[in-house]
Computed example of a mutant assay.
Amino acid sequence: MTGTGFTTTFTVDQTRAEAFAAVLDPRGWWAEGIDGRTDEVGAEFTYAFEDVHRTRIRVTDIEPDRKVSWLVLENHFNFTQDDTEWTGTTMTFDITEADGATTVRFTHEGLVPAYECFEACSTGWTFYVATSLRNLIATGTGQPNADGRPRLDTEVAAVEATGRRAAAHA
């Protein structure tokens, strides 16, 4: 983690070009239901997970085989007091190569421990980036959320909390 955001890093034996292509395909490692283009500067896409989380993201920077950056334009969490915690934050994938190995460094700038979503979000990024994206690059198969159902314990907890809140308001 950096002083102003969450960071996770991994190294694979594949090339920077292979890592870059995988980063540009979040449907292959984050969520199959992502809607919109993710492979050109200025493009916008949306991510939604049940009623728990939805976000609209703009691709702000692409440097082939080196870097991809996103800006969160809108965000909604239903499990935090401030449901817009991600709004205005950035996500950057830096890709470097040395000694025949490629390192991908993901930073969600603005995702800080003071955020109510920090535990759930950092756990999610650790899985979807450091495990699923890594596997997509290394083996050709990621573990994206494919059915819109919770995959991680933190996702299950957020869905259950949503159900409890809905029951309390009924």
Rank of each mutant, 00 (worst) to 15 (best):
A161P: 00
H108E: 08
L111G: 07
Q143V: 07
I57C: 01
S69I: 12
W86D: 03
Y128D: 03
D61Y: 04
A146T: 12
E97W: 09
A167V: 12
T154E: 13
P64V: 08
V104T: 02
T154W: 00
L71E: 13
H169L: 14
R54H: 09
I57F: 01
V112R: 07
A48Q: 14
E85M: 06
A158Y: 04
N145Y: 04
T60S: 09
D35A: 11
A21T: 06
R151C: 01
T92K: 08
T90K: 13
T84W: 00
G110C: 06
A22Y: 10
I34K: 11
T15N: 03
E109W: 07
D13G: 07
D39V: 02
F79A: 08
A146E: 11
T89S: 13
Y115Q: 12
R56M: 08
T90N: 04
E155H: 11
D61S: 13
D39I: 04
W70N: 04
T89P: 11
Y115N: 14
A21W: 06
T103S: 08
F118C: 11
S122K: 02
V41Y: 02
S132T: 08
L71H: 14
G42P: 02
T96Y: 03
G5W: 13
D35R: 15
C121K: 03
R151M: 13
F118W: 11
T80R: 04
W29T: 03
F20H: 10
T84D: 05
T96V: 07
I62C: 08
A98E: 12
T15W: 08
V12H: 05
D61R: 15
A130N: 15
Q81P: 08
W86M: 03
A43G: 11
V129M: 10
T87N: 01
Y47T: 09
T7C: 13
T154S: 15
D39R: 04
T9P: 05
T2F: 00
T154V: 15
F79D: 14
P144F: 06
G28S: 05
M1T: 12
A31M: 09
E18L: 06
E44G: 05
A21S: 09
Y128P: 02
V23S: 02
L111H: 12
V72A: 04
R54A: 06
S69M: 13
Y115W: 15
L73M: 10
R105G: 05
A158R: 10
T15E: 04
R66M: 06
A21Q: 10
S132V: 03
V41F: 02
L24Q: 11
G163C: 10
A138R: 02
F77Y: 15
F6M: 07
T131G: 03
G3A: 14
A170Y: 01
L152G: 04
E116N: 09
R165Q: 12
I57K: 01
R165D: 10
F20V: 01
